[in-house]
Design a binder for these strands. Structure first.
Lengths: 412, 412
DNA sequence: CGCCGTTCCGTGACGCGGACAACAAATTCT
DNA sequence: AGAATTTGTTGTCCGCGTCACGGAACGGCG
């Protein structure tokens, strides 16, 4: 796993800061690999054995990691004393991840290492008020923390939302499919739970990109784009190993790229946005899918056999739009999420051909088009990642704000 | 000045690394401010006074900075002993910046702090072979290092090129207006000089963005886009305080965004790229400018009085394209460079109106449209910045690869 | 004009984190 | 089974940043 951390600009490096960074980086490696040997850690981090040992001991003292048998996992290569492993502790810290979809909400309890410990979901009415959805999500959360050992610490809650989220405070500026404007969903959920823990909220495509980068198909790829077809079309961008957020957190809104000025009207007020050609409603129309099944477009497309000319044309439109994205961002990998997964399975060649036709040679030659490695869980796991993030920046501080005994607290 | 530095992924922070980072950061502050007091440094970097003192002493011992009188500069506010200043040393390290335009090359000797010490330029034939241009640039460089004190050290050469530059090795993949393909211009210049110093090459729009971010109109703005109209149209992106490069270094190629599928053919092979509407040739045609003056379009436009309807339409097309850019990148500032400067001066209201019409409300509300603060020198100063960059990462190492006595060496 | 408060510089003592060396332990290769 | 190799552990040292103290320069005030 490679997530480049970014420094605040002009600040110097205090040696205490350096230590916190090192502690967090060790944890990041354990998180990424699930289990890792101390020898591997010394190699990857470029620090001395004894330094690594001290850091690992501190993590163990904090109850985050535990010793593992050396032989476990890889069979071993070469001679020498086998290195003792470091792995995530049972009953270690965990987060709650929420994936708010257009027609259902998924909630999971996820531990370090990305392990889904418990999981629950429920349908959500797309015309529901925010507080109703919040109450439903709170119910799922209560369900998911049932029976959690009291020692385990809740680090935070991460929420994936199909809409524009302001990064400064997590306000949902606009979620078209939920018909929400300026909703402080984090506060609503916390109020419904009666808790106070850190809440991180972000756009679903951004989180999909993050998850695919950390544990999906794009591990080791520092420049990737996750293009997600939900009802709307959005993209999440990882550039140089870091999430591209933009000034307000709205970067990656590719759905309203100018595609065909003579096209049909878009709900944004313009004409011929890309979304009017490859959005769910446009595709549903092209395949004569009833409008109440638009939210399940992925399943509908997955049931298709031979693609009709209309579907082929949609694939071409997808590829042409991707060409713009490839030209502008020059990613190494483009991951197609949401219903684009089954669309690509149907008309992959058309998409590739259209992309190759319109993209510039230089950015085209290094890009690959792939499906997500995490299936439909990308956004959920991405929500877990942003909730875990404070732990990698400063484990001690993050555990300081964490909550213990959440199971009994929410039950009683 | 704020340039966020990025860490390599999983590496731990050696305490030697921390010290180098701190030393470089001090220098970065001095570079940004020109002159700065030690007290200011302690405040900005959050380190102890004595730590700052040690770092400043080391920079002085290296001959990079020197003590300045306290009273100089700001009149002082509040009582107390005035803080001794730190400023860039005379005869300190310098770089050579090259701005390769479509019809002329500008070469400057630039010191730390962004001071242009010497400067020279010459016309360049747009159909020239790369080695001819390289020889001309080498001549300008010889001219610019004339009379340099032997003690001053040449840190590197930075080159700005109107084209696609591969970031891994600085190869110019494509420079349409120079008709270059896969040219290793850095090597050509070094060979013509008979020197061996670090050479950094990058796209002119990228460097314009960097320069405006460091010392231009976008100081303190971490998310900005410099949209440059030269003969082609390109953009440089700073996101989160860091240059957005993309996998190969080609990010920001906005000239070939799909604009009007029914439009005219573009030299890239597609139809209706944005460049066919707001590129130099399109504008020249709209204002009936003779084709041999296309390279001087900026001056031609600056001489205009009342804009004609055709020019107004061009402004609208510019604004519509900028809307796509604002939606996708969500910048806080968009800087219009090249001939877009005089175009904006003519039809600013049309550009703003078209942008407001097509951009999404959320990203629109935080963006401002401005002209460059460095005029036509943005790219040149950006070239100096990338050449200076190693000095801020590790001053000691950068001075190790620097050259002394360049003046006599190139003269003899 | 002289005193005082303020702010800053310089120096030395201290604490801490990381590197290094030496030794013990565990496993593979021959 | 012994040699070789690699790792974990411990103790020591060194470098770096912080803290505390004294001295210095300046403005304000009487």
């Amino acid at each position: 796993m490679v997530v480049t951390t970014r420094r605040r600009p002009g600040l110097g490096t205090n040696q205490e800061l350096a230590r916190r960074h090192n502690l967090g980086t060790v944890l990041r490696h354990v998180h990424g690999a699930g289990q890792i040997s101390r020898a591997e850690l010394t190699g990857r981090m470029g620090l001395n054995r004894s330094t690594i040992a001290a850091l690992v001991n501190e993590l163990e003292a904090l109850g985050i990691t535990e010793r593992a048998l050396p032989a476990e996992g890889i069979p071993r290569q070469g001679a020498g004393r086998p290195s003792a492993g470091v792995r995530i502790a049972e009953d270690g810290p965990f987060v709650i991840a929420v994936d708010l979809g257009v027609d259902r909400a998924v909630v999971a309890r996820i531990g370090l290492g990305g392990r889904v410990l418990q999981r629950s979901q429920a349908p959500v009415r797309s015309d529901g008020e925010a507080w109703q959805v919040g109450a439903a999500v709170a119910g799922l959360i209560r369900c998911v923390v049932e029976g959690v050992p009291d020692a385990a610490q809740l680090v935070g809650i991460g929420i994936s939302v199909p809409g524009l989220v302001r990064n400064s405070d997590g306000l949902i500026r606009l979620a078209p499919n939920l018909e929400w404007h300026d909703v402080s969903f984090g506060g609503i959920v916390l109020a419904a739970l009666g808790l106070d823990v850190p809440v991180s909220i972000a756009n679903d495509a951004d989180l999909g990109a993050l998850a695919e980068h950390v544990r999906g198909v794009a591990v080791g790829v520092d420049d990737l784009i996750y293009v997600s077809g939900n009802v709307g079309v959005g993209a999440g961008v990882i550039a140089g190993g870091v999430r591209l957020e933009g000034a307000g957190g709205y970067a990656g809104e590719v759905g309203h790229l100018r595609f065909n000025p003579a096209g049909r009207e878009c709900h944004c007020g313009n004409r011929g946005c890309w979304e009017t050609e490859v959005g769910a409603h446009a595709i549903a129309e092209a395949i004569h899918c009833p409008s109440d099944k638009v939210a399940q477009l992925d399943e509908v497309l997955a049931g298709f056999g031979e693609p009709s000319p209309a579907v082929r044309a949609t694939g071409t439109a997808l590829g042409h739009g991707l060409a713009d994205i490839v030209n502008v961002f020059n990613p190494r990998q483009v991951v197609l999420g949401g219903y684009f997964r089954s669309l690509y399975a149907l008309v992959g060649p058309e998409v590739e051909a259209a992309l190759a036709d319109r993209a510039l040679p230089a950015p085209l030659e290094s890009v690959t088009l792939t499906l997500p490695g995490l299936g439909s869980d990308s956004s959920l796991l991405g929500a877990a990642e942003i909730a875990l993030e404070p732990l990698f920046v400063d484990p001690v501080a993050a555990l300081g704000t964490a909550l213990v005994g959440v199971g009994t607290r929410l039950a009683g």
